[in-house]
Simulated scan of single mutants.
Amino acid sequence: MSTDYQQAREALGLQLRELRLTCPEGRLTGAQLAERLGGGWTKSKVSKLENGRQTASAEELRAWADATGHPEAFAGLLAQLRGFESHIRSWRRQLSSGHRPVQEAITAEHDRTRVLTIWENVLVPGMLQTADYARHVLTRHANLMRSPRDTEDAVRARILRQQGLSEPGRRYRILMWEGALHALVCPPSILAAQLDRLTGLVGLDTLELGVVPFSASLKIFPGNGFWIYDERRVVVEDWHAELWLDDADSVATYLRVWNTLDESALYGVDAQNAINRVRRGLSVRA
């Protein structure tokens, strides 16, 4: 966890402690506040929030403000939370209502973007997935995160976003490491259909689809995936969270990474041939 993020979380905790200690009815102990807040709240949870060891949800901030007799403080607390959550968005919190809201939030970001630049090293990017492939990816992620199951709604939302590929004026610059073509995150027959879709997309006028093959000479290692939105924002995915980075230095760094990887990429017929080689090998294994 970044130092800036932790400092922001601790600053929010100090605000929460101040509200508890200045309750109009008299200062509350952590145990008294937990009892007042009711189900799911413990003295330990109060302590973790106040000491920046846990991040409160918007609903928890509202409950805290009301329980300490400071309902007017909620807006300020929420603004603090949104300020640092705009950079680090934990999967636990994002998936509390399932995958569909996450997909819709990404769609909103896509809708305001004219040029989307993607690097993916382990999966076929969502913008290019078949429904069956997406279904397996989302199901496995829900299992890992122990999040609510809304797989079919999430698949529909993801596939609907792909309409952007046919909209004039949009541009998609997508690079994939060859490993993403081999990953059996679904049955071989479904991966085969996914690879067939990729070969069919090569040459689409809104899409620049590149493949960095295993045999390529690399100037940088193929690190984790990221998405650059109009050179104004980068979203980087990790196991615990997504990082949403808006500062110019970070955007510039990820653009350099993408451009460096692009120097090793195959496009057009060469990319199709690379995908088809994987497809033929998959048929043997299937």
Rank of each mutant, 00 (worst) to 15 (best):
T3A: 07
E25R: 08
T29M: 00
E35G: 12
G38Y: 10
K45D: 09
K48S: 11
E50F: 00
A56N: 01
A63L: 05
A65C: 08
T68D: 00
T68H: 00
H70P: 01
L77D: 00
E85A: 07
S86N: 07
L95V: 05
L95K: 12
S96T: 11
V102S: 09
Q103T: 05
I106T: 15
A108G: 08
D111S: 13
R112I: 06
V115L: 07
N121H: 03
L123S: 03
V124K: 02
D132E: 11
A134N: 11
R140T: 11
H141L: 05
T151S: 04
V155T: 07
A157I: 14
R161V: 02
E167C: 12
R170E: 04
R170Q: 05
R173I: 09
I174P: 03
I174V: 11
A183W: 15
L184G: 05
C186T: 03
C186Y: 02
P188S: 06
R197I: 09
T199C: 14
L204C: 11
D205T: 13
V211C: 14
L218C: 09
G225E: 06
E231P: 07
R232M: 11
E237H: 03
H240Y: 14
H240S: 12
L243A: 12
W244T: 08
L245D: 08
D246V: 14
D247W: 02
A248D: 15
D249C: 13
V251Q: 01
A252S: 10
T253C: 04
V257P: 03
N259H: 07
Y267T: 05
V269D: 08
Q272S: 06
R277F: 07
